[in-house]
């Protein structure tokens, strides 16, 4: 599904956001990407949905080297990837329905089809009754669920989430993670960047750890304490 081979990303000559990262994420996997602030988590995700190109190395998503994708092809690639952001990134002047149906609207799908798809995904996230509400009328948790609905409306094979629970309380965070699990069970590969170690521990999924731009695969035990995780988070997989 995703293969990174010796990927580096530099901002200027002296800032190495990612250094020589090599890893593979299989189709249908649920993976956490963790690490302290500034470790390179967001950069990692930005490279995966081609918000930025890598400085060097190869990134294969569904067998396609997205590092060399021509600019005209990037929008089409992005439609095959769902992305959820910490700050939701909803368009304030558009209703929940319009936010979700945006790409379908651009593509000229009939209004009825847009509504049918939006209703389906909103039902999955439990917000079908808020179709005509505006983002400012919703709580943080609801806004994030709308963002998730928008991310999955095109039925992507890959869902990326950048600190999706960063602005939410623990109960809402749990709820959002349950949604990601449901999406993953339906076959979508899910990659969640977070530094919420409690959440990672409870979920018991594979973890990719980043530290100062370098990556190590680390198993995170359910019984590990947050302190232990922080002190020794990068245990190599056996």
């Amino acid at each position: 599904m995703i293969q990174l081979f010796r990927v580096s990303k530099e901002y200027g000559r002296f800032r190495h956001a990612l250094a020589d990262v090599t890893c593979t994420i299989e189709r249908g996997e649920f993976v956490f990407l963790t690490g302290p602030s500034g470790a390179g988590k967001s950069t990692f995700l930005k490279l995966l949905f081609r918000d930025e190109p890598p400085t060097s190395g190869q990134i294969l998503v569904n067998g396609r080297n997205i590092g060399v994708l021509p600019p005209s092809q990037i929008p089409y690639f992005r439609r095959s990837v769902g992305v959820v952001f910490q700050d939701f990134k909803l368009i304030r002047r558009k209703s929940v329905f319009e936010n979700i149906a945006f790409v379908q609207n651009v593509l000229g799908l009939s209004r009825a089809e847009q509504k049918r798809r939006a209703y389906q995904v909103l039902k999955r996230v439990g917000l079908h009754h808020q179709m005509n509400a505006y983002p400012d009328e919703l709580s943080g948790g609801e806004q994030q669920r709308v963002a998730i609905a928008r991310a999955i409306v095109n039925e992507p094979t890959l869902l990326l989430a950048d600190e999706p629970t960063g602005n939410l309380d623990p109960v809402l965070s749990e709820e959002i993670m349950r949604l990601f699990l449901e999406i993953n069970i339906r076959g979508t590969t899910v990659l969640v960047a977070t530094h919420d170690f409690d959440l990672i521990r409870r979920m018991g999924k594979r973890v990719l750890s980043l530290d100062r731009g370098r990556l190590r695969d680390a198993p995170l035990r359910r019984d590990a304490s947050p302190t232990a995780v922080r002190e020794a988070p990068f245990l190599p997989l056996g």
């Binding site: 949905f49 918000d51 005209s72 929008p75 089409y76 690639f77 992005r78 439609r79 992305v83 990134k89 909803l90 368009i91 002047r93 945006f102 790409v103 651009v106 928008r150 095109n154």
Partner: peptide, 16 residues
């Protein structure tokens, strides 16, 4: 500006 950024992230072409 924010909207344009979001539109691009969601896969809107430059023409769109």
């Amino acid at each position: 500006r924010d909207e344009i950024e979001i539109m691009r992230l969601m896969g809107a072409t430059e023409t769109a």
